[in-house]
């Protein structure tokens, strides 16, 4: 029988909200899918498109970016810019038919440990269903 597919998911979490949310999920012992590898960034706006694209090309089956809710960014406007940039990248993956569902942006506050767990678990389920990312396995890229 074939080995069950376990995805590699990269999570870029902003330090002030989503990372703290992840912490809360951990300290309140909520079950979180272990396929997410967390990278802490200072703000969701730190995540430029190359970080997401290189993740997708170099081994990730999915990429989750998470930051403070709009209006709550520690740097005031960071997540507004992040949202625009994400909309742009998402559109590119759509036009080129590059499985846009493999990338996701979510707002998760420091008090939303439960939401954090739900989002990660759902995303992990979705990506598992999609299977391995063809981009990371192509030897001609």
């Amino acid at each position: 029988m074939e080995k069950k597919f376990k995805p590699n998911i990269v999570g870029f979490l902003c330090n002030w909200c989503s990372y703290a949310g992840a912490d809360l999920a951990g300290s309140s012992k909520t079950q979180v899918d272990p396929s997410l590898s967390v990278i802490r960034v200072m703000c969701s706006s730190r995540v430029n498109s190359n970080l997401i694209l290189s993740s997708l090309l170099w081994g990730a089956d999915g990429v989750l970016v998470a930051g403070c809710h709009p209006g709550d960014c520690h740097y005031e406007q960071g997540n507004y810019y992040a949202r625009r940039r994400f909309a742009l990248l998402k559109k590119i993956t759509k036009i080129l038919n590059l499985e846009p569902d493999r990338i996701q942006l979510s707002w998760i506050s420091a008090s939303e440990g439960k939401r954090y767990a739900e989002i990660v678990n759902q995303f992990a389920r979705d990506i598992t269903k999609k299977g391995p990312n063809p981009l990371t396995r192509n030897s001609q890229t």
């Binding site: 694209l53 290189s54 590119i92 192509n138 890229t141």
Partner: peptide, 26 residues
Amino acid sequence: SSDLKRKGGLKVPSGNLLFHLGRMTH
């Protein structure tokens, strides 16, 4: 080595698609 493990072979120079996609986002 992790890329090679997954792909079994690597185009050289590498990073073509990253270049084109990344440039597109810029």
